[in-house]
Design a protein around this nucleic acid. Structure first.
Lengths: 137, 137
DNA sequence: CTGCATCCACCACGATACTG
DNA sequence: CAGTATCGTGGTGGATGCAG
């Protein structure tokens, strides 16, 4: 945490020398499946099918792609056991494990406040009935 | 932080009673612009154009939508000043500010490790030249 | 079991023009 | 200035089938 931009200077972080670098890395993390996958792998070594079962709603295709991206970024290590049937174990690298704290903190926050957020949504939707953009989620 | 699933039980978090709730909230946070927007608003009150200028690459459309979603979720408060020209200030709510720590921790991590990740990508792309899926990023 | 290839639908997002 | 409306596109992501 020895940042030069003392505390919470999101501004300086995202407007540094090359904003594109920050973006490209953030984009990889902030997609539909990556955070949750990293979160699971930081705790223990898991195989493909275990991940598939642990992540609600993910498809094999997306799990494969997510894991490849993580491997490419040096966050996850892949071990292939030449057995029959084949077995592949995924575990977080040291770099990946350093992501543990931030990711789990975020996940915990979401878990702790999801109900409050749902309540806000209902209230808002009530108040602004029909006022939302055409293609809103 | 008084979670029952002691520490880092990402598994229990994302497989709780209704995984869909966790997902829907996580989805909102983990999109292309939300994290960065929240991060900026946690530090200070900002107006629309300031945000537009501070977030590299965002369009007015997406900023509007992102802010609306955050407002809907009770994370951001919107104040309209009936002046000429119009002025609108955005600030984080208390709930939004509680997101501060996790979000900034994540942003800082990304900033601290982006170079390492880029290096890993190059190495990987070298090693696996041409081995990447057809529609890879 | 692991995971690549193919096909395809959808909607996220950007560009642009217009309004209060 | 702070949006909204509309349109077009690319890419994300699901379903399925095949292969090692």
């Amino acid at each position: 945490m020895e940042r030069d931009h003392a505390q919470g200077q999101m501004l300086s972080i995202c407007q540094e020398d090359d904003p594109a670098i920050f973006r490209s890395v953030l984009d990889r993390l902030a997609d539909k499946w990556t955070l949750i996958t990293i979160g699971l792998l930081e705790e223990r070594e898991l195989r493909f099918t275990e991940l598939l079962d642990s992540i609600p709603g993910i498809s094999r295709r997306m799990l494969t792609r997510t894991l490849r991206s993580l491997e490419r970024d040096g966050l996850v290590h892949r071990t292939i056991y030449a057995e029959i049937p084949p077995r592949v174990e995924y575990r977080a690298t040291e770099l990946g494990r350093s992501l543990s704290a931030p990711v789990l903190a975020l996940a915990t926050w979401v878990d702790d406040h999801k109900q409050a957020i749902l309540t806000h949504r209902e209230t808002f939707d009530d108040t602004h009935a029909g006022a939302v953009p055409p293609d809103a989620t």
